[in-house]
Every structure is written in structure tokens, then in C-alpha cells.
Write a protein that binds this DNA or RNA. Structure first.
Lengths: 168, 168
DNA sequence: GCAGAATACATCCATTTGGATCAATTGTCC
DNA sequence: GGACAATTGATCCAAATGGATGTATTCTGC
């Protein structure tokens, strides 16, 4: 695939990145690269600072945004395995950041609410994550960010994002 | 944050997704959601079909795109921990999909090349992944896809994507 | 050309992950 | 209303993960 193979050379990293984002899988490669690269920063940072995995603080964020939601709902917002969410919620409850309440109509599910401690933790985490978002989106203008967001939302709204015909 | 808390109700999943993509962290939430949701499909599929983690087949893809690259270079394309790449390459070498060759100028590094078996495996995997890409990007028009790609590339080219001032 | 820093990759090991399963409850169909 | 399927969340356990460290080699400053 590369003439330089014969010459025993390889393009430098920047060129390789450019070219892989020009390959058949360019859309997938490009967006995955962006998210993977950022995860190395954001996820590791909060893991170290607060000894909690991504899914824990993002669950807390979801619970604070929508007090009373169920674990099940978090899974829709952050598509991860069910037991991952279950454990994240257990961690938050165990540390007193989230409180569970019986859901009147359904004895299986529990409604989740942030505690004052949970809200305080979020107020500590959110400024850092917001600053990181600003840092990573700095290359885009305001208009470009809105375009990017609109396109992501369009992808998220697509019916085949979370299930597949081509991959059983 | 939500008046329905008093009423003991929660918005449905679709509305929650909309609203979290309208919050302060909307850009991060939106793009992460898209990638996470797709990973649940694509990664798991190839794990089952070919008993290999994402990083293995994407390393193979990189090696086929740029024959002769080093493990180090793969890490630039797919930002993951170093030992993750190391193991992925070891798996590919162990299964005979990749062959290592001494790099003349540097005895530490190894040049990586796909074997016929590796290329054959890729020809089996790529159609499925390409079809999946098509499936997930179906909501976007051709022009929108190019816009999305251009914005992702702009983000990837940003100097602060892979390192951070705000997150030590 | 030599000492110390840096790089490339492999490996160790405690922790995390996720598929599978379980228990409890609710929904559906007749 | 009773049997069977579906849902909600917890837990089990084999396997993967990633930070730290090790080994070998190359680069840098003097």
C-alpha cells in the first residue's frame, strides 16, 4: 500500500495520521482518534484525582441532570455494559454521593438522587472537565463547534447507532 | 435541575439524551456518546468473530496501511497505553498475521509488516467494518460527512488533544 | 568517548472489565 | 388468574487492562 516500503522508509506520524483519516475507514478512524486521545487525558485525570472511573462521575453527572432516573436510563446516555453502570452506581452510593429511593410503580428499579456530597463533588469535577472541553475544542470556531455538535446529534439520533444489521 | 423531580417523573431516554447534549458538556457528551455506542457494536463484533480486541485489528490495519512502521507509530494513530499496543502486536505476530524485521538504524525498534495471512484476515474484517461505518453514518449526507470529517481532523490536529494544561 | 538521560519494547501484578448468570419483579397472552 | 417471557439490577469469575518496572539500545552534553 506504500511505495516507501521498498525504500525501507515510513511517513512520519503526522503524515500517517493524515493518511489514515483519508482511508476507507476515515470517518470511523477520525472520530475514534479524537475520543480515544481525549480519554487518555480526561479519564485518567479524574481516576487519579478522585479515584473513580469515568462511568462513575458521568453517572453522577447524569443523576444530577435528571434526579430520579434509574440505572437503566444512565445506560442509554452512556452506552456501556449493564454491570459497569451497576458498579458505578454502587460506588457512588457507597461513598454517599448518591441516594437510592424506591420507585413507586416498580419494585425492581430504584430512583437515584444526588446527595449534597454528590453535588459538591460535581462542582469540583465539572470546572476541570469544562476547561478540558474548551482546551480540546479550541481549534474550532464557535460556528464550527455548533456544526460539529449538530452532526454528532444527528449521528446519535440515527436508529442504527446502537444496534446493527451488518454486525449481528 | 429538573422540575419533574417534584412530580416524581423523569423525561424519557430520548429527551434525556437531547438535554445532556445541550448541557455545558454538550460537545464532549455528544461525541463520546457516538463513539461509545458504536464501540459496543463494532468492537464486540470482531472480538467474537475473530477473538481479538479492537487494538489488534486496528494495529493490523495500520501495519497494512504503512508497512514497516514501528509499534511506537501505531500508538500515535490509536492513542492507547503502550503495553496495550505491545500486546496487540504480540498477538498478531503470534498468530502469524504480522512479521517483525530488524530496523537497520535502531536495534531497539522493529519494523512491522503484514503477512499474507494478515492481509487475508484484513480482507475479511474490512468489508464488515466498512459496512458498519456506512450504517452508522447513514444519517449524514455526503456533504455532511465531509464536514464532519474535516472538523474531526481539525480537532485531531489541535496541539492540546493529546496533552493538557488544565489536566496535569 | 563516556556518563546520564531518553527511547523502544516487554513483562509483572493488582485491579478492572464484561459476558454470563442469578434473584426479584413486572408484563403478556390465553 | 396462571404460565411464560421480559425487565431491573446484583454478582461471579475468567480474562483484559494499565501503571510501574525491567532490559536493551540510542541520544546528548561535555
Amino acid at each position: 500500500m506504500d511505495d516507501r516500503q521498498a525504500a525501507g522508509e515510513c511517513p512520519d506520524a503526522g503524515q500517517m495520521l493524515d493518511r489514515i483519516m483519508d482511508s476507507d475507514l476515515r470517518y470511523l478512524m477520525a472520530v475514534s482518534h479524537v475520543v480515544l486521545a481525549n480519554n487518555q487525558i480526561t479519564d485518567r485525570f479524574i481516576e487519579r484525582r478522585h479515584a473513580m472511573p469515568v462511568q462513575a462521575w458521568s453517572s453522577l453527572y447524569a443523576i444530577a441532570c435528571f434526579p430520579g432516573l434509574r440505572a437503566r436510563d444512565i445506560q442509554v446516555l452512556f452506552p456501556r455494559p449493564q454491570n459497569t453502570i451497576s458498579r458505578a452506581v454502587a460506588l457512588l452510593v457507597g461513598r454517599g454521593h448518591v441516594r437510592e429511593e424506591a420507585l413507586p410503580g416498580d419494585a425492581r428499579a430504584k430512583r437515584l438522587f444526588p446527595t449534597p456530597s454528590g453535588l459538591a463533588l460535581l462542582e469540583e469535577i465539572l470546572p476541570a472537565v469544562t476547561a478540558r472541553q474548551e482546551e480540546m475544542f479550541a481549534p474550532l470556531s464557535g460556528a464550527e463547534r455548533e456544526t460539529f455538535l449538530a452532526l454528532c446529534r444527528k449521528l446519535a439520533a440515527g436508529p442504527m447507532l446502537g444496534r446493527s444489521r451488518v454486525m449481528g
